[in-house]
Simulated scan of single mutants.
Amino acid sequence: MAQPYETAPVPPPPISPDGPGQVPYGYPPQQPGYGAPGIPSYPAAGGYGWPGLQPQPNNGMGTASLVLGILATVGFCAWPLALVMGVVAVILGALGRGKARRGEATNPGVALAGIICGAASIVLILGLFAFVIAAYKS
């Protein structure tokens, strides 16, 4: 009587290029354990985490700079709040550009746009002050 299923060796699944790196199949080689010689001990712990993973980009400062710069530019008539938001947008944009230069972030253009929008709101507020002072003096 023939067997209904033939058992053939199953090939290993492919390893993703972005996955854990070149992980060999099977168990990792055993490292020597801790303890005195001749006394059984627990094996040493292996490495933690996935080898080869890159940290995620930290784009928060550049994005926050752009959002605050746009809000400050659009709402420049509410000058006390818009002035603070414009200054904070310029500071966060500069910090975001620094992170992008170091490779910690991937959005240097967004951070630059935040700096530009924040500076534009500061210029609009100073222009509003100049207009109010000129109108008050005349």
Rank of each mutant, 00 (worst) to 15 (best):
W50S: 11
W50D: 08
P51A: 07
L53D: 12
L53R: 14
Q54F: 01
Q54L: 14
P55T: 08
Q56S: 14
Q56Y: 09
Q56I: 08
P57Y: 10
P57M: 06
P57F: 10
N58L: 08
N58S: 07
N58H: 07
N58M: 08
N58Q: 12
N59M: 08
G60P: 00
G60H: 00
G62H: 02
T63V: 11
T63K: 13
A64G: 10
S65A: 15
S65K: 01
S65G: 12
V67K: 08
V67L: 12
L68C: 01
G69L: 03
G69S: 05
I70R: 12
I70F: 00
I70L: 11
L71S: 10
L71C: 00
L71T: 06
G75D: 13
G75A: 13
F76E: 03
F76I: 09
F76Q: 03
C77L: 07
C77E: 05
A78I: 11
W79F: 15
W79A: 13
P80T: 08
P80M: 11
P80Y: 12
P80F: 11
P80A: 09
L81W: 09
A82Q: 09
A82H: 06
A82V: 09
V84L: 15
M85S: 15
M85P: 04
G86R: 02
V87A: 12
V87I: 15
V87L: 14
V87Q: 03
